[in-house]
Every structure is written in C-alpha cells, then in structure tokens.
Design a binder for these strands. Structure first.
Lengths: 147, 147
DNA sequence: CCTCCAATGGAAAATTGTTTTCCGAAGCGA
DNA sequence: TCGCTTCGGAAAACAATTTTCCATTGGAGG
C-alpha cells in the first residue's frame, strides 16, 4: 500500500486490483513507464485488462495530482512519473530510458523563476536529453525496445 | 533570411516559399507554435498549403537540430522552439501560452548534471507550469483558444 | 532554350497514442 | 437481499502526426 493507493482510497475511489497494480508499478518503477508499458507489464497478471483501464486510472491519478506526466521521450508516448519532488529527468535519446536525477540547485532556480516571472508555479518538467553512459559506450548497440 | 532558412539551404534543401515562410514564423514567433498554428497562420498566404507540408518541414528542421520540440503544453500538441540557447519555458496552464524565460543559473545546473551523471547532454527542456500573471488576475476569463 | 531527373508540395489514406461510449458485472449501504 | 453507483473491458471514436502517391517544379547539362 503506497502513497498512490492511499491517495485513491482517500479520494473515495474503489481500490480494485487493477488500480492497485497500476499504482504499484508507478510507485516502484524507475522506468517512468508509458500507459502501454504498464499495460504489457500487467497483462500476464490480468489477461483481460484493457488499455482503456490503464489510461483511465492514469488520468485519475494525474488529475488528483498524484503523478506527473513527463512528455514523450522521443518514442512518441507520454511517460509518467510518480516522484513529485522537484527533480531532473534524464532521457537517453538512444534507448529512451528515463531516469531521475537529483540536483539541489533546481530549488534555487525555481525560486528565482517564481519571483522574477510573476507566475504562480504549479509544477516543473526538467528534462535533459542525451546519451546515457551505457549508450555512449555501446556504439549503436543496445537499442532497447520500449517494452 | 534567418538562421533556419540558411540552415536549410546549407543542407542542400531547396528554399521553397513554403519552407521560407515556416522558418520565418518559427524564427519570429514568441508563441512557440504548434504545427497547426503555423498551418493556420500561413493559410491566407498559401491557400493550398497542406498540413503535411508543415509537418514535413518541421521534421526536417528538427532532425537537423535547428529547432527543438517542447512537448505539449496541456493542449495535446507539440510545440516548437527555434531558440536553441539554454533557457526556460514558462507554460501557462490556463491560456496555454508558452514564453521564454532567461535564468543564468541553469547553465550551472547543466554543468553539474553533465559532470555528475555521466550523460552526454544534447539538449534540455526546462518547463515550468503555472498561471501567468495575466491569468492569475483574470479569474476564469481570458481563456485563449489555440490559434 | 530544351530535356531529363531528382526533389517537392499537396491530397488523401494510414498510423498510432489517447479518449469516449456503452453495457454487463461487481461493490456497498440500507 | 435490494437497489443504486462505480467499475472494467471491448470496441468505436478521436486527433495528432506520418506516410504514400503522383503531378509539378527547379535546375544542371546538353
């Protein structure tokens, strides 16, 4: 029972096995999965699961502010992130993996932006694109299919 | 004749009126237009212009590294940015406008990320979401349709 | 100036990620 | 248990983007 699941419950939604499973994946994954990835990952466990259910659940979670969307990582699909603390996402332009990266400087940046811009900041998406150390080494190999 | 147009030419592509016009919009716009916005903006001038042409051109420009995509701004469409210098994009979650914002701190951030992560950084997308000063004031008014 | 070939723009079809609709099947309070 | 509401799932609907196909165009070479 993680933060997401608790959130759903507190919002008065039913904790169905599907929802719990989706929350679990989101909470544990380091991959910042897309809807499709979650779907495939759960299919063995819920053979009748439909993509629509995944999307619906993700939409609920997002509209409750429990997860964030990262925008696509070069693979044309929306990636989700359950880590709401300000942090940086590193996207590898070759293998399309997304990892979190902590850099305390960004707190300062956000403060500066908020003060100087006059915007009421609600969230951030800080993404750096590049080659991950692995892909830098492995020439043109190790292209990872988006699961 | 701007940087984009020159880039196209140097790449050996023909400078057709359509391409020049698209480059012009990208170079001058502060709106970070979507393909659709560019299309509508050019329709009066090129009544037979097709969206496919816009997309094709944008794709070429992007693959040449002359423009960047920002990811969607809450309106479900890809926004383009011709400003390649590191900068911050501020997205208003109400009117969906995107503006540039300069904050020199991010140079430091990028350096730190590059050194500590081992990634070969190729680009960045630094987006803050929130209410722009205008929308903060105007209650629920001033919802701007995406042109 | 004319010819030929590769590059181009446009219309329409195809793809693909995402959302909506509809309906039978639970879940839950009374 | 009864009845009302919420759910999940299948399929249809949508919408942004990409591809296909073909007539046109621009330009180099003759």
């Amino acid at each position: 029972m993680n933060r997401l699941t608790i959130g759903l419950k507190q919002a008065g939604l039913r904790l169905t096995p599907q929802r719990v499973a989706i929350c679990k994946i989101l909470a544990e994954s380091k991959d910042h999965p897309t809807a499709m990835m979650i779907y495939h990952q759960l299919l063995p466990q819920f053979p009748t699961l439909s993509l629509a259910t995944v999307y619906k659940t993700l939409h609920v979670l997002k509209s409750m502010g429990l997860v964030q969307t990262l925008g696509d990582a070069g693979d044309g699909a929306e990636h989700f992130d359950a880590d709401l603390t300000p942090h940086i996402n590193l996207v590898c332009t070759k293998c399309h993996r997304v990892v979190d990266f902590d850099e305390s400087l960004i707190y300062t940046v956000q403060q500066a932006v908020e003060q100087r811009s006059g915007y009421e900041i609600q969230g951030a998406r800080i993404v750096y694109y590049g080659l991950c150390p692995e892909c830098r080494v492995n020439g043109s190999l190790s292209q990872r299919e988006s699961a």
